[in-house]
Every structure is written in structure tokens, then in C-alpha cells.
Amino acid sequence: MSMVRTDALSHDYLIYEDEESDQGTPVRALSEVTIDIREGEFVSILGHNGSGKSTLAKHLNALLLPTEGTVWIEGMDTKDDDKLWDIRQRAGMIFQNPDNQIIASVVEEDVAFGPENMGVPTQEIWDRVNSALERTGMTAYREHSPNRLSGGQKQRVAIAGVLAMQPKCIIMDEPTAMLDPVGRKEVLAAVHQLNRELGITVILITHYMEEVIDSDRLFVMNKGRVVMSGTPKELFARVEEFEELGLAVPQITMLGYELKKAGLDLPDAILTREEMTEALCRLR
């Protein structure tokens, strides 16, 4: 069953050079993107700044509509006005800055905001809030004020807020860019758990290559197009191509690549330190 599907999706932004005229010049941000993400998949999207990642993400819950082509979320066309709220409820979005997405003064009220707006009955709201806080490990903070939480905790509250809407899919646009190392780990662990235990489809956009090695599949974007797709193992073997695209590979993968170049007989695309240790032990 496909969760997210796009067919030749293109998107133009309008740039207004001249303040007087209302005639904008179209600039192509997405170009004929065709992808298919299955229910329950964990997919990451990589690409340099301006490659079209965020524009793509915003099409996946109908914040933007295609200039050309089509986007379906669980078979619903995002251009269909009647389906808009169904789509937004099914595909929840998490943004970069935790401070921009928290609105209530108490954690549990913030998490309840989504289901409240959907008209969920009060008792069920409480059930959903309880379970969302439990799932993200934030139950102990339910009566706290969000502004006293760390960045990683705030992002987990934002995830709990999306979770309370019982989405089928969570789209995260650089959710860890502003977090410290432990905050990054917390957020990643939380979404992987949701993916594993609840089968929620996850689409993660990030600049940290270490964060994507456990993904089922990666898409690499450049100039509005998807230029590479495959498993982390398949793609991270292509170190030079990544560098040409303004990207990097995980630090361990880079070390493996360098050691191989210097003459050590190592396999391609070593992703974790465990793999590296094992490979080096075998050479001994």
C-alpha cells in the first residue's frame, strides 16, 4: 500500500523582480519528482540547501500544491479541497525550530491542541494525550511549561502533538538542526520507535548523515530533482558523487573510504563503528 505517491510533481515559485508589476517570474523548485513511499517505511531525504527538499515536504501535507503533476496521500489527491483536512490529519509535520511550533503554556495542553481542533470527544483527547506523552517519553513533564524544556524535549512535545492526531505518516524537516547531540539522539530514537511499534511512515529531512543510516531508503535531491535513491548501503558507497552534490557521507564511512584508498582491503560503505571494528578485525 502506498502512503505517499507523486507523479511528475513540479513546483514553481514566483519571483517578483519589479515592485510595481504583479507579473512574477516563475522559478522551478521541483522538477518532475516521481516517488512512491510505502506504508510503514522510514525514508530520509538528503540534498544541499536549495535543492528542493523542503518544497517537496510541504507538498506532502498539502501546504503547497503542485504546479504540474499530482501528489496522493493514501490515494487522496492533495488538490482535492474536500480531502484537505483528512490529508493534514494523516500526514503530520515537524519543523526545525521547536519554539515555533509550541503554542500552549502547559505541555499536556499543547499536545491536546490537535485532537481538540479535530473535534475529538474530551475523554478520548485525554487518552490520546496520555498515550502520545508515554510514547515520546514525556509523561513526567506533562504539567511543565514548555519554555523550561531542553530543545530535544520540546521537539518530543511537538512529536507528541502530531501523534495525538493519530497520523499515518510523520514528515520531519530538519527536526534536529538546532539540538545538541543528546537532544538529537532523543528525537531520532523517538521517531524510530514510532515507526517500529506503530508502523507510522516517517519521512526525515536532515543534513546530519549519521541520522539516516538506519533508514529503509534514501532519496538525494539536487536542483529540484531526485538524483539518487536506494538503501544507505547502496548510496553511501558513492562517496565522490555525494561530495559533488555538496553533501558528505557519515564520518565512519569517510574513514572507511580513505583507508580503502590507502590500500586496506575493506568493503564499501561501512556505516557503523561496529561494522568497521569487525572489518578491521577480519584483516588482522
Binding site: P181, E210, Q251, E258, R273, T277
Partner: peptide
Amino acid sequence: IGLSAPQVTYLMHDLKAKGFDVDEDASTV
């Protein structure tokens, strides 16, 4: 305290534990 070391530093410690005589303080590729 919410931080970590670079990935390679962890690797070097793993290797040391496996009996490799490596520089375990290495922190860059």
C-alpha cells in the same frame, strides 16, 4: 552532560578494546 565525542573517537576506543594498538584520542578522520 548532553554531549558526545566525534564518531571516530568511539571507534578508536572500540578498536583499542579489541586489542588494536591505536591512538584512542584520535578525534578526526
